[in-house]
Each structure stands twice: as C-alpha cells, then as structure tokens.
Design a protein around this nucleic acid. Structure first.
Lengths: 172, 172
DNA sequence: ATTACTGCAAAGGCTTTGCACGGGT
DNA sequence: ACCCGTGCAAAGCCTTTGCAGTAAT
C-alpha cells in the first residue's frame, strides 16, 4: 500500500518533527511492515539484527515519541485470565525468531492510525486487523444519534470507538 | 439491583465451587458495590479497613479465582500514551482514600458479566459502564451477517465484542 | 482429615528513568 | 554549536510464586 523504504520513512519522521536516526527509521519500518501488532520486545528483537547494539530504552522512547506524534497507536495488553499465551511461530517480520515466549502483559503497537477494528485471539494474544471493508460495514452501523445522546447524558466527549472482537482462531 | 449482603455473596461463592472466606466475601462485595471498575490495589485498600491484615497476594488470587469461575471480568489497562493519569477523588466505595496515585498500568475488574460497553476517560483512566439502554441500542445495530462473514473469511470464532468508547469527560 | 485459601516475602516481567555520550540538524 | 536521541544500568510498578501455616468443607 504505502512505500516504507528508508527515505520515505525518514521524510515521515522529519515531517513530524522527529530526527531521522537509523534506529527510528528501522523501528518504524519494522512496525509498518508487520501485520501482527508486535510488542516492544518483538520489535527490539526484529531490528537488533540490522542495528547492532540498539537498546530497549531506545525502543520504548521511540515508540512513545511516535505515539505522541500521532504516527502510531499503542494497544492495551490483553487481560491474562486463564492460560492465554501459547505463542507459536508465524512467518512475519517481527515474529521470525519463533522460540521466545514474549509473555503476556506487554503493550502492542499499531502502525495504522486510521479507524479500524481488531480481532484478538484468546489463545495466542495476537492481534490482527479486521479487513477494512468488513470493519467499515460494522462501524458504519453504529447509530450516530445514540452516540450523541450518550455524550449529552454522560458529559463525555467520545474521541475514539475501540472495537475489539475477542475470540479464538479456528485453525491450529 | 442485586442484593450483595454477606450471605448472598457467600452463597454465590459456594455455588461456584469457591470457599466462603471472609476475604473473598469482602472483596466481592467491594467490587460489586463499585461502579468504578477498581484496580487490584484499589480493592486492597478498600477492604483493608474491615479485614485487618489481608495481603495483596490474596487479592490477586481471589480476583483470578473469580475470573476463572466466571463471576467477574478483568479489563485491560489503558494504553498510557501521553500524560493520562491525574487521579482525582470520587465518592465511591473503593476510591474513598482519594489521595493515592494508583498509577497507570494496572488491570481493572468488573463485577458485571453481562455484555455491556465501557467508556474510558483519557485523563483519569477511569472506566464506567455505558447505561444499558444506550449500550444495547448501539450493540443491536451491529449487523450479524457481517460478523458471520468475518468469522468465515478469517476462520475466527468471535466470543465477545468488546466496545470501548475512549474520550474525555467534560466536567473537571 | 483433607485441601483450598491465606499471608509474607522474594522474584518476575514489562516499562521508565538518570546520566553521560554521540549523532542529527 | 545546539540539543535531541542513544545506550547502559538501575529502579519502578504491577503481578506472580513458593512455602508454611490456617481455616473451610
């Protein structure tokens, strides 16, 4: 969809008032390339190959900076009731080293900032996007007038409608 | 709505195969009495007055047991981008000691298990329920056929539709 | 009598912070 | 030259765990 080569990412950073460091370019690329909404640690391991010696602090700092700049979103960790995390492998940029547990209560990051829905697997903790066509059909049916009544009655400004379909993926 | 006196809570526990200990009765009562979706620490402080010497471990163990028994639900902590937590006081069972920060990334618990929506305040991190009449109107409009198509196309069993309205409460 | 539950303290996982240095502008 | 961003290690917060003792069934 978008081009995520080093140059356009660098431009993106600059445009948002961030410096174009090797670390941040690599981090944003890794995140944008993934559909799996990786954790900070997964991103750390993903870029550690190319960028020798990057530190976790930098990963967290950079992700926080991206969030503040509105470049990416942070997703809450899944509630961890019951045994929820098996963690299997999957052929994706950031889950390549399919052996490390990457246990449960870590936040996940999302490079797409336009409104969309997520599905979260109870077994693996993985988060995927709902395809836009389906998501839009679902969101479009939320009656705006009810939302507005809610804002009036509760004195609450709704900035974002977070919809998450929680369940279990069938295969495997 | 429901009666949450010691006896009926004790019965509820027994009926779910849990022992009726003072600690668990008090914890469930405190949680059920609150509309604020308290954190483990908030519950700990709420019951520490009556139950002298209760430990945090017991709070966590009990809440986990309640979750497994299907008595309560665990909510994910809010993503903590930007300064999100001011923590003001509120006249509620578990937030009585309106002075302690109870900082950010703690899970919250919810005594109501029937499907309902939440609103989460970006400033305070507080979670409230959407009134049932409004919530039902919103949820009823989610087209079931689209959900079913989604399950087919992605091979995913949807167990729960988690809707959270994220925003900011106007007053204060 | 059995064993689930409790309390304590220590350990654990994820994230943040302080500080000196290096690289981007 | 300025100062944002980096790396390292230590500290922090929330939660879990091990174990000996206690109390519910």
């Amino acid at each position: 969809m978008h081009a995520h080569d080093a140059k356009s990412v660098a431009d993106l950073l600059t445009r948002h008032g961030l410096r174009r460091t090797r670390q941040r370019v690599a981090l944003y690329q890794a995140l944008a390339a993934s559909k799996a909404h990786p954790t900070a640690d997964e991103l750390y391991r993903a870029v550690a190959d190319d960028l020798d010696g990057i530190s976790v602090a930098t990963v967290y700092n950079s992700l926080e900076a991206f969030c503040k700049a509105g470049l990416i979103n942070k997703l809450p960790p899944a509630p961890t009731t019951d045994r929820v995390f098996d963690d299997e492998g999957e052929a994706d940029a950031d889950t390549a080293a399919s052996e490390v547990p990457s246990s449960g209560r870590a936040a996940r990051y999302d490079a797409s900032t336009h409104p969309h829905m997520h599905i979260r697997c109870l077994r693996t903790g993985r988060v995927r996007d709902v395809p836009d066509d389906l998501g839009e059909q679902l969101l479009a049916h939320l009656p705006q007038d009810v939302l507005r009544r809610l804002e009036d009655e509760l004195g609450f400004d709704v900035r974002q409608v977070q919809v998450e379909l929680v369940g279990e993926s069938r295969s495997r």
